[in-house]
């Protein structure tokens, strides 16, 4: 019962932000559609704009979901394991809602303007001549897992910061950018650029873009990543305490 209530609270908490977010998106789509209708030439709307915007939104939602709701849940006698399940459940629900809305927007917008989306850019080749329903379903599933992964990663980052003292926060903030921007390219150049080539290959395989185009591989890889991040989320929340 508490699990259900906490999921309801999470979704209630996001409700206003989602309405504002999609209010802006709808307004922009209407403006683009009107401009496109009255313009003598069809215009191109930015590639993957909606998915990128949704990814940023859900990442922020994930980051913002920890401290406040953790305290609120504790004062209402909700255990950490229930909190973990409620967060994962609510983020999956939020991701499903957003993926569904984005899929519908994507479907409608294709008929209103020359809109490209991230999924079409990656996997468009697979759907040449295929019924649009399959494209709709596959795109929805792809967005669902991607959005879920992004949201729970935001939550993980928020918890890492919560557990860290000032020094650890500084290290956590500086070390990854320094590693990826300076150290890794340096090592890469010293090893005849094999590291980045290997990473590129790995990423393409995980995204189902190596040799042929297969979004189901991307969905599977993302699900594995969701499981790994969730495992760390559970570890961190099970050790989290109210700060004195």
């Amino acid at each position: 019962m508490r699990l259900k209530t906490l999921i309801q609270y999470h979704l209630w908490d996001y409700k206003r932000a989602i309405m504002i977010f999609y209010g802006i998106i709808i307004t922009l789509f209407i403006i683009f559609a009107i401009v496109n209708l009255i313009s003598p030439q069809r215009i191109n709307v930015s590639v993957g704009g909606l998915e990128i915007a949704s990814i940023i939104f859900i990442f922020v939602a994930g980051v913002a979901s920890f401290t406040e709701i953790f305290y609120f849940s504790l004062i209402n006698g909700v255990s950490r394991k229930t909190q973990f399940l409620a967060f994962t459940g609510s983020m999956f629900s939020l991701a499903a809602i957003m993926a569904a809305v984005d899929s519908v927007f994507g479907f409608i917008s294709l008929r209103l303007a020359e809109v490209q989306n991230l999924f079409a850019v990656f996997y468009g080749a697979k759907y040449q001549g295929v019924a649009s329903l399959q494209l709709f379903v596959d795109r929805f599933l792809w967005m669902l897992v991607i959005y879920t992964l992004i949201a729970i990663t935001g939550y993980l980052i928020s918890m890492i910061y919560y557990h860290s003292n000032k020094t650890t926060k500084l290290i956590v903030s500086i070390l990854p950018p320094v590693f990826f921007i300076i150290v890794l390219p340096l090592i890469d150049s010293m090893t005849s650029f094999k590291i980045f080539a290997w990473l590129r290959g790995l990423l393409l395989r995980m995204l189902g873009l190596y040799n042929n185009v297969n979004p189901y591989i991307a969905i599977f890889s993302t699900l594995v990543a969701v499981a790994i991040v969730s495992f760390f989320n559970y570890l961190l929340i099970s050790k989290a305490e109210v700060k004195n």
Binding site: F72, G77, V78, S79, T82, V242
Partner: peptide, 18 residues
């Protein structure tokens, strides 16, 4: 233990509500 925790309410000095 959610079942046991639902039997206790603790008013904290610290602000824990959003």
């Amino acid at each position: 233990n959610d079942a046991v925790l639902s039997r206790i309410y603790c008013m904290n000095e610290k602000k824990l509500y959003p």
